[in-house]
């Protein structure tokens, strides 16, 4: 039962490895956006520190959103998405596999590079640990929700901008919880409540969103 899913995962990862620039672009975007913030608001370390959770999270969220346009569009253009509908597996699981592969390629590198940017913004080690944990739980949520928008804009002119309008409002809860977790540690309280809620949200998204995405793919290919 899982062999087709493994085949799909391997295919997507292989393709990503053959074109590493796609994944690197996303990480590059993340780094550049964060680097621009001090230029806009001044170099005061304390001030930057207080803004760091929000800045890092908003930058990560935008990076994920930009990367999502590619999630289905390549498969849509060459016709492999159509063939996926004929694969004898539930479309929800196939979609989930693709999202997982996409997260490994784009989401995970963001988590891994985040400490470097956090140091630039003067976060302390314990805060960085929470930041990474929050991003580790949070970026899959962003990918899962964003996949719905990616599917709904398949084949549309100006799809990239439209994804932003459709998806960014839905990113409010993970943003609040994720940035809030780091903020809580900075103010000397525990991040546990934030992280638990974020975890609950990820479990919910994991079970609910792939079906919505699958429905959206079917509709857009209809």
């Amino acid at each position: 039962m899982f062999r087709p899913l493994l085949a799909l995962l391997r295919r997507d990862l292989t393709l990503a490895l053959r074109r590493p620039q796609d994944a690197l672009t996303v990480v590059g975007f993340f780094v550049v956006v964060v680097a621009l913030f001090p230029l806009g608001i001044g170099p005061d370390p304390e001030f930057l520190r207080s803004l760091a959770p929000g800045v890092l999270w908003v930058a990560a969220l935008l990076a994920v959103m930009l990367s999502l346009e590619r999630l289905f569009s390549d498969d849509y253009r060459d016709g492999t998405l159509e063939q996926l509908l004929l694969v004898p597996e539930p479309m929800g699981l196939l979609v989930l596999t693709k999202i997982f592969a996409h997260w490994l390629i784009t989401g995970l590198p963001l988590v891994l590079i985040s400490p470097l940017l956090a140091i630039q913004l003067n976060l302390r080690p314990d805060e960085i640990a929470i930041l990474m944990l929050a991003l580790l739980i949070g970026t899959p949520i962003l990918s899962l929700i964003g996949a719905i928008g990616a599917a709904l804009t398949l084949g549309l002119r100006g799809g990239g901008v439209l994804i932003a309008l459709l998806i960014l409002p839905l990113y409010a809860p993970p943003l609040i919880l994720g940035a809030g977790a780091v903020d809580a540690v900075m103010h000397g309280s525990s991040a546990q409540a934030h992280l638990s809620l974020l975890g609950a949200m990820m479990v919910f998204a994991l079970f609910a969103t792939p079906w919505a995405t699958a429905a959206a793919v079917r509709i857009m290919l209809d």
Binding site: R3, P4, L6, A7, L15, D78, Q83, L85, L86, V87
Partner: peptide, 30 residues
């Protein structure tokens, strides 16, 4: 549906970055 029929549309549904052999093996795996 895919257990009873195979479909070839206008698009070839091939991954450009993969070889012919890989494309076919992966489609079989799927």
């Amino acid at each position: 549906t895919g257990t009873c029929l195979g479909y070839l549309g206008h698009q070839n549904a091939l991954k450009e970055d993969m070889t012919a052999e890989e494309n076919i093996l992966i489609a079989g795996g799927l």
